[in-house]
Write a protein that binds this DNA or RNA. Structure first.
Lengths: 211, 211
DNA sequence: GAAAAAACTGTACCTACGGTACAGCTTCGG
DNA sequence: CCGAAGCTGTACCGTAGGTACAGTTTTTTC
């Protein structure tokens, strides 16, 4: 049960493993993957180097586990957010607009700003990772495109599209605005930049589907 | 003349220095800053370690020089692009729209896709750099905000804004879409994604200022 | 409560990289 | 032909990633 799926919570090792991943995620988003040393992670968690290598066979296994956990959490967040928005609203357009509003508020409530997107971090360091990890990145992104594209299709079935745009591109644009917003938020040091950009995307959607 | 401003082209050292920066930029965008070794740079350029340290007192000086050159080049590109668009067009809105079209086409013509934005790469590794470098990043980004904000103000003087949006946010959104577009382009491996996202931003601008 | 599996620790060692120090050589413009 | 610019060569240090593996403690299971 060293590598592979998340161990059942009953096992103690899973807690340590998660602590390592927590420390690693923070560090990788602040210093990059190569800039994150195993020594600092074990110091943060309070284990030895041997303990680290018990959980991850090498640094590459850490990279993969980190990304897998991140993707699973983001998926769960989107599931939760937009299913709640759907419950509040019958109409697919209004449901999406409500979901985006909730997303923006959720991001605005992060006191120190968004910590960063692991997908983006990995993209800017992709030569450090093997094919498997890069494929994971691609697959997750395409999955999110499909997720939002499906919602846009449901909206387009009821509302006319007021511009000649590809709905895949419009779906991508949410992730584009989110990832770009995180970067600009970090660059200028304004935590409110990201949630405001999400609202701009929301406004564009209204424009696209409504009078 | 070791550090500081770009040396005059007549000096041979400037050519070597630029070669180091070329190799470094490619490597940093692919593997991150910490993942880029000085050894690989000197191997790529064909000099010795001593030669490297003749040009840069340490790796931090390389980071700073790299970012300075990148910012100067991007500034020059924006100057060139939008001044050409302005010459073709009297109207500020149409001028901006033409400039965005040209930007999109320029990005579409890159055969292997956009190599990446150094600002974004540095944001995701900012703990590796000193205050000076981080301040440079912030200043450049704010400069670009101001640049586009000024154009938007000139547009808003002639065209009514069709939504309750902050023009600083709209200005930021171009960089947001560009940086986010680069990331998604890399993530899904579609070089055409970024130029298409620029066109979506262009479409949003039309929506915002026209009927 | 004992056996077995899980979750570690400790020690030793290797290579690569960032960095420092400094002496010497070569090339080129004035 | 001199002096500065632009390097090379050598030697050395500390830290980090990684390997190997034997031993120990903790937890789970029967």
């Amino acid at each position: 049960m060293v590598s592979g799926m998340n161990a059942p919570a009953s096992r103690k090792g899973a807690a340590t493993r998660d602590q390592i991943l927590d420390a690693a995620e923070t560090a990788v988003l602040a210093k990059g993957f190569a800039g994150t040393s195993i020594d600092e992670l074990i110091a943060a968690v309070g284990i030895t180097k041997s303990g680290f290598f018990y959980h991850f066979k090498d640094k590459g296994a850490l990279a993969k586990a980190l990304l897998e956990r991140y993707i699973a959490r983001e998926d769960a967040l989107f599931d939760d957010l937009f299913s709640r928005a759907d419950e509040l609203n019958e109409d697919p357009l209004h449901g999406f607009l409500v979901g985006l509003k909730m997303l923006s508020e959720l991001l605005a409530d992060l006191p120190t700003g968004h910590p960063g997107c692991l997908i983006a971090a990995y993209c800017y360091q992709d030569r450090l990772f093997d094919r498997e990890v890069r494929a994971l990145n691609t697959r997750a992104t395409l999955g999110w495109r499909r997720r939002f594209r499906d919602r846009l299709d449901r909206i387009a079935a009821r509302y006319p599209l007021r511009a000649d745009v590809d709905l895949d591109d419009v779906a991508d644009m949410l992730l584009v605005v989110a990832d770009g917003g995180i970067i600009l938020s970090k660059a200028v040091g304004e935590t409110s930049l990201l949630p405001r950009q999400i609202l701009l995307y929301r406004d564009y959607l209204r424009h696209l589907f409504q009078a």
